[in-house]
Design a protein around this nucleic acid. Sequence first.
DNA 1: AATCTTTATCGTAATATTGCAATATTAAAT
DNA 2: ATTTAATATTGCAATATTACGATAAAGATT
Lengths: 109, 109
Amino acid sequence: MGATKTDFFTGKQNSIATLAKALGHPARIAIMEYLIKVDTCICGDIVNELPLAQPTISQHLKELKNAGLIKGSIEGNSICYCVDEKAIAKLQSYFANMSIKLEKKNNCC
Amino acid sequence: MGATKTDFFTGKQNSIATLAKALGHPARIAIMEYLIKVDTCICGDIVNELPLAQPTISQHLKELKNAGLIKGSIEGNSICYCVDEKAIAKLQSYFANMSIKLEKKNNCC
DNA sequence: AATCTTTATCGTAATATTGCAATATTAAAT
DNA sequence: ATTTAATATTGCAATATTACGATAAAGATT
């Protein structure tokens, strides 16, 4: 045990959970925010921005990339990372839809 | 090691990460969706809805509650669980804001 | 070519998560 | 009072995550 039973859930449920899981760490939230903050998406100084060791940040970036939240391409010596808008749009519409559904309910708690 | 370094991040970053982390599992996404789907928020049949054992679901509900995503109150024999709209609103506005910021950028990846 | 810079990977220790059987709890029903 | 029903807690095994030192890889600089 200990492994998530993804087979039992829908593709959409797994997809949203994957995105949410990747954002479920303050360092990865901070990375996302930093990538958005800097003007250009060529960014080689994330390590200096965060209080974590370089391998740790590299690992977090890998997770964000695997989840589809960021894109990365080789840019000479360094790597160009930037946010994948489609993933954010997906989350945004998911929660917007949830909010709409919730508004229609009468609170009972 | 192995423990998240929450001290180094802002309250907001940790707060969003906590919400995202709680939603980072398909079973918990499914629970949220089910809570929204049913008309009344008195719900005692989540166990029958999901392919997981009762203790497992109880644990997932606890995590959602700890994260502030759902509210629960004792309703006689059973428990009345329902989604906390404020948490969803928080996520919705967070990602809406991210989307807006991303629109203003010129893609370079 | 040797060195520097930047990012990735490996290995490993500490901790957290996932899942469930067994059991406990608590209130309703009999 | 006993049984039933619903939910929570405990204990535990399997697996995943977090973090970082050491090291590797690869292009840039000298």
